[in-house]
Computed example of a mutant assay.
Amino acid sequence: MTAGRYLIEVKGRPASGLHWPPGCEYPRPYVAEAVRDAPVAVVDQDGSSASRDLIRRIDATDSTAVVAALLTLPDAQALFFALLTGVE
């Protein structure tokens, strides 16, 4: 397979319709860039030591920053929409 030709592969085969147009070099300038400290909210319905450890591990990566650990999905949705609209 030609490098950079397909955006997504599923089980080693290119996903249909998701390929770069011929001659398109879009990703090349961004190869060295990486996402850093992307804010994420975690829904922890388990509340166990294992789930808290997982949250700590997610937060410890360079690419994510856990900004909230919530108990329910509705809480997470409310936080998302509050941040989106600027109303808390």
Rank of each mutant, 00 (worst) to 15 (best):
M1V: 15
M1W: 03
M1I: 13
A3K: 09
A3C: 05
A3Q: 09
A3I: 05
G4V: 00
G4M: 00
Y6K: 07
L7Q: 06
I8W: 06
E9W: 05
E9D: 10
R13M: 11
P14G: 02
P14K: 02
P14V: 10
S16Y: 08
S16D: 12
G17K: 04
G17D: 04
L18P: 01
L18Y: 05
H19E: 13
H19S: 09
W20Q: 11
W20R: 15
W20H: 13
P21C: 04
P21K: 12
P22D: 15
P27Q: 04
R28Y: 04
Y30D: 02
V31E: 06
A32F: 02
E33I: 10
E33T: 12
E33D: 10
A34P: 01
A34G: 09
V35S: 11
V35K: 07
R36G: 05
D37A: 12
D37M: 03
A38I: 11
A38D: 08
V40R: 00
A41Y: 00
V43F: 04
Q45M: 15
Q45L: 14
Q45I: 14
D46F: 12
G47M: 07
S48C: 06
S48F: 10
S49F: 11
A50V: 12
S51R: 04
R52Q: 12
R52Y: 07
D53S: 14
L54A: 14
I55C: 07
I55M: 03
R57M: 14
R57C: 13
D59V: 07
D59L: 01
D59G: 02
D59W: 00
A60R: 02
A60F: 01
T61P: 04
D62E: 09
D62L: 11
D62S: 13
A65H: 03
V67Y: 00
A68E: 00
A69E: 08
A69D: 05
L70P: 02
L70H: 03
L71V: 10
L71F: 07
T72E: 01
T72H: 03
L73F: 11
L73D: 03
L73Y: 11
P74S: 10
D75G: 13
D75P: 05
D75E: 14
A76P: 01
Q77N: 10
Q77F: 02
Q77E: 11
A78E: 09
L79I: 02
F80Q: 11
F81V: 15
F81N: 15
F81K: 14
F81P: 08
A82E: 05
A82W: 00
L83D: 04
L84E: 12
L84A: 14
T85Q: 11
T85I: 03
G86S: 06
V87E: 13
V87P: 06
V87I: 13
E88L: 08
E88D: 09
